[in-house]
Amino acid sequence: MNCDEAKMLLHALLDNELDAGHAREAEAHIASCPACAAELASQREMQRVLADTNLRYTAPTSLRIRIEASLPQPQRQQPSRRSVLRGFAMGSAVSALAASGVVAVVLRQDDQQRILSEVVSAHLRSLQAGHLIDVVSTDQHTVKPWFNGKLDVAPPVIDLTAQGFTLVGGRLDYIDARAIGAVVYKRRQHVVNLFVAQTSSTEHRPPKTQTMQGFNCRRWGERGLNFWAVSDIGADELAEFVDKFEAAMKANVEG
């Protein structure tokens, strides 16, 4: 192998694109040629510095939301589903019609299943590098005001560090074609996403845990808000999280 060939293959060598045979040949040449060895060393050095630097950009949340909004949305075909975030099911109108109606019950489960799947997808998305948190803070008095003006709802932000769940920040997310708030906690190395959406129903809905794709999701309704807590921690730990959160909320209200 001559230098011309080696100088071309050197990049493929750097990028692990050479098969074993060519790699051996290129390495043999480089071992015997100081000029090519120097070239390889300097390119390797540059690659190392580049790899140590974050050269990627993060797409703005607004862009993500614009793209989501441009995709066909379920409610265009089924307008009734628009109400899902306002009430867990069909809103108070259906409740008033007596929730015992079979149709209503079926629709309710259908909607809830879809919302659950969206919540779990949002949780998964949040676990990708750089997506977890828009506002990074362990201070509830920083995270809470951050949501102001971004949502039609003020998600409660409570520090649960003392109870074993560390507040790490907040994020805008997108569920059922609407922007909603996500408050992010950590339990050891596990992420807990608490999604909060407004509902027209002020009725209390007891927590219920469901599992999807290996994630536990515990949802409940309180004070005119719907909550979904999603994590890969165990169902009992997630229930503990919800209990601690609700206890702290009540303490806040009473205090």
């Binding site: 050269l55 990627r56 862009l63 793209i67």
Partner: peptide, 28 residues
């Protein structure tokens, strides 16, 4: 076609949206 569209959109979401940062980075 409504249901097909929705299913397609959902598959598209799952396949394409995770690459949003990569696509945005290249565009920048």
């Amino acid at each position: 076609p409504a249901n097909d569209d929705l299913q397609k959109a959902q598959r598209f979401r799952e396949a394409a949206l995770p690459h949003l940062d990569d696509v945005y980075t290249l565009a920048r």
